[in-house]
Simulated scan of single mutants.
Amino acid sequence: MAVSSRTPLLAFVSATTPTARAARASLEKRYGAVKPADADIIVALGGDGLMLQALHRNIKRQTPIYGMNLGTVGFLLNTYKETGLLQRLKRARQVTLTPLRMIAVNTRGKRHEVMAINEVSLLRSSRQTARIAVAVDGKKRLAELSCDGALVATPAGSTAYNLSAHGPILPLGAGLLALTPINAFRPRRWRGALLPRASKVELTILDPHKRPVAAAADSVEIPNVAKVTVTEATDIELTLLFDPEHDLEERILKEQFAP
């Protein structure tokens, strides 16, 4: 871990549930607490949604985050236990995540830049099928994708929405992004693509006024987009800490063999 041998300064953040709030109060009393801006390590208490929030809020500071699951799935978190936290932090393994940078231009020409740890997704906003042109690194790959939407997922996010849309699971070290259609109508047999992590994906909405589409970077949604560009934000590195027995890379590998 990239901290000194002294006892690390800890900041605790929690979900709004009574259980998570009570755990936070107990941990702060036991270990002491500082503000996230002053912490060596941030401890997140909740589910995967809370962890994504903590990662987004920490993008500028890039402080290591250790999560403990007090939510439902907890894919990005460790098992909750109040005692032995300092020893667990000392033994923890680092996993570095690089988010996606979404640049979305809406139908009025306004530009939005948002980061995504899991995926950037486009979804139709009306009963009519979305029509999307797909280009990769400036070369048009699909003149028209008729679908409910499409998404670009990171390896860390490949087991989330991407997997539900029948996209591939990507090991953390694969150096790939997943481009996955959501209920593709035409080309009917197109199931998506695996792209090098350095790829620039451009998704242009065809007839955006008649067939409106919204774009989302994790939980941040931009309505009525005309064009969305997705690249890896190589200038940002986010560090997650995992107990050796809950290593994220091993979890992602296990998902490929889940019954």
Rank of each mutant, 00 (worst) to 15 (best):
S5A: 14
P18Q: 15
T19Q: 14
T19K: 15
T19H: 14
R21W: 06
R24H: 09
S26R: 15
E28K: 11
K29R: 15
A33I: 09
A33T: 12
D38I: 13
I41S: 06
I42T: 03
G46E: 09
M51P: 02
L52P: 03
A54S: 13
L55I: 06
H56F: 01
K60V: 12
K60P: 00
T63M: 14
I65K: 02
Y66V: 04
G67V: 05
M68P: 05
M68R: 05
T79G: 15
T79Y: 07
E82L: 09
L85A: 12
L85N: 06
L89C: 03
R91L: 11
V95H: 03
T96S: 14
P99A: 07
I103G: 03
V105L: 14
N106L: 08
R108K: 13
K110W: 08
H112M: 06
E113S: 14
E113R: 12
V114K: 13
I117W: 01
N118S: 10
E119C: 09
V120D: 02
L122K: 05
L123Q: 11
S126L: 06
Q128G: 09
A130T: 01
R131C: 12
A133F: 02
V136F: 15
D137H: 13
G138T: 03
K140E: 13
R141G: 12
R141Y: 07
E144S: 14
L145H: 08
L145P: 00
S146W: 10
G149T: 15
A150Y: 04
A150D: 01
V152S: 00
A153Q: 04
T154P: 00
A156D: 04
N162T: 12
L163W: 07
S164C: 14
H166S: 15
L172T: 00
G173M: 07
G173P: 00
L179A: 09
L179H: 05
T180L: 02
I182P: 04
F185P: 04
R189C: 10
W190C: 12
A193K: 11
R197D: 04
R197M: 11
A198W: 10
K200E: 11
K200S: 09
E202H: 02
L203Q: 05
L206G: 04
K210H: 09
A216C: 04
D218S: 07
S219E: 02
V220G: 03
V220C: 05
I222R: 09
V225T: 01
V230A: 07
T231N: 10
T231I: 13
T234H: 03
T234C: 00
I236Q: 00
P244M: 06
P244R: 12
P244V: 09
R251E: 01
L253R: 14
K254T: 08
E255C: 15
Q256N: 02
F257Q: 11
